[in-house]
């Protein structure tokens, strides 16, 4: 039995357990809807619901057919390839530009810092539908609509704020005298950047890159407006599937994506711990 301070009355204790109950209920609300799709994705029937057979745990009510369909349907395999291709390219672009810029923004001499920071972070705040409409109008005149390049640029712009935020946070613990020491020893700023700064802020850069990747990987509004059929991504394919024909293939893909996000979550946790160790701040 847990020990409570002596001034606690029975109501305090009830409140304590009540709060705990509420907290767990909210957690259940957060997590259960995501988990419910996992068993549904093994449905042997082409429906989105638990069949009586599934509830009775009959083995023949379950099957891998929807996973097979994902693996063999040309549209899904293309979408998977596109998602990784666009996500990786957009993340690299955003990380490269964002990291370099974050170094400048972290400098105490940066002019117009507030304004420029706000500008660089704004893709995160402007509703996607507005960005999508604007890009559709503007990219059309450069022939970028319906191309991989257009999508990569668009997604990189969305990923930039995350890179800025994470890298700036790592740079906050970065001792600038190291940079200046490198310069005073005669190295060029570029060399100092690659050899001194990057290794130190690497955890921040990597997690920023991961954020940028996930942003692109999960993004569907810009894809709806800017992509042609050849650039279909996983979320785009899911979106049209949910609109046009609901079948458990989507659930199979969704389950795979849940597994992927668990992997990402673990990676980020490892990175966070390493970053804290490097900066000597965390436990």
């Amino acid at each position: 039995m847990r020990r409570f301070p002596e001034y606690f009355t029975i109501w305090h204790i009830a409140g304590h357990y009540g709060l705990r109950l509420v907290a767990w209920l909210v957690l259940a609300f957060l997590i259960l809807p995501i988990l419910v799709i996992v068993p549904l994705s093994f449905n042997a029937e082409p429906f989105f619901t638990f069949t009586p057979g599934m509830l009775a745990l009959e083995p023949e009510a379950y099957s891998l057919r929807w996973y097979q369909e994902v693996a063999t349907d040309q549209r899904w395999t293309l979408a998977i390839r596109n998602s990784f291709l666009i996500g990786i390219a957009a993340a690299l672009l955003a990380t490269l530009l964002g990291t370099v810029a974050a170094v400048g923004l972290a400098s105490p001499w940066m002019p117009f810092k507030r304004l420029i920071t706000a500008l660089l972070l704004s893709p995160m705040i402007v509703p996607l539908i507005i960005i999508a409409a604007g890009m559709f109008f503007f990219y059309t005149s450069f022939g970028l609509v319906g191309t991989y390049l257009g999508l990569i640029i668009a997604h990189a712009a969305l990923g930039v704020p995350f890179v800025i935020i994470t890298v700036t946070a790592t740079l906050a613990g970065f001792d600038r005298s190291l940079f200046n020491a490198g310069l005073s020893l005669g190295a060029s700023p570029v060399k100092v950047f690659w050899d001194v700064v990057i290794p130190l802020i690497r955890p921040g850069v990597i997690s920023g890159g991961l954020f940028a990747f996930v942003t692109s990987f999960d993004e569907v509004v810009l894809v709806l407006f800017l992509a042609g059929p050849e650039q279909r991504t996983i979320p785009r394919q899911m979106f049209s599937g949910l609109r046009e024909q609901i079948n458990p293939t989507i659930l199979a893909v969704a389950t795979l994506l849940v597994v992927l996000s668990i992997a990402l979550l673990l990676t980020l946790e490892v990175l966070r711990r390493r970053s804290e160790r490097l900066r000597g701040t965390g436990a």
């Binding site: 291709l85 390219a89 690299l92 490269l96 991989y148 059929p229 050849e230």
Partner: peptide
């Protein structure tokens, strides 16, 4: 890796130009 990604992107584009989209 950036170069690789751009090469991949361009390659994919080249290949995709041959696709016939039937709706």
């Amino acid at each position: 890796s950036l170069l690789l990604a751009s090469a991949l992107a361009l390659g994919a584009q080249g290949a995709a130009a041959q696709d016939l989209t039937v709706t």
